[in-house]
Amino acid sequence: MSTFIDLYNYWIFIFLMMIGFYIVIAQGNLVKKIIGLNIFQTAVFLLYISMGKVKGGTAPIIVAGDASYSNPLPHVLILTAIVVGVATTALAMALIIRIRKAYGTIEEQDIHEQDASL
């Protein structure tokens, strides 16, 4: 049972990741796909941050005295990854607006039908 206690944080992340990933590949709505992508990415962020946690540690801002701190490196990496994520989302949204203007729909299926009928 100790494995479960030790790893539950990681399993939560895996669960979230699976939901997000499922939304991305199974849904036909373009906006919802991107939301799924975001959930997927956030789950990965959780993985990174979880591995940086140290029992009894605090946020890695050095204060006087001896304290134990959590690992700062995953935090830095994820800060970067969050920014990359929002950049991707913004670009995707702009694309969706253009797709809607060109096709009049944001459903994958309708778009395929329109293209096929050309």
Binding site: T42, I49, A59, P60, S70, I82, V86, T89, A90, M93
Partner: peptide, 21 residues
């Protein structure tokens, strides 16, 4: 999980910017 900087950013970006967009 002690990641205050990340939390700050996630709140501003995920709950803020992404949602607005």
């Amino acid at each position: 999980l002690d990641a205050v900087d990340v939390a700050f950013t996630e709140a501003a970006v995920g709950a803020g910017i992404s949602t607005i967009l």
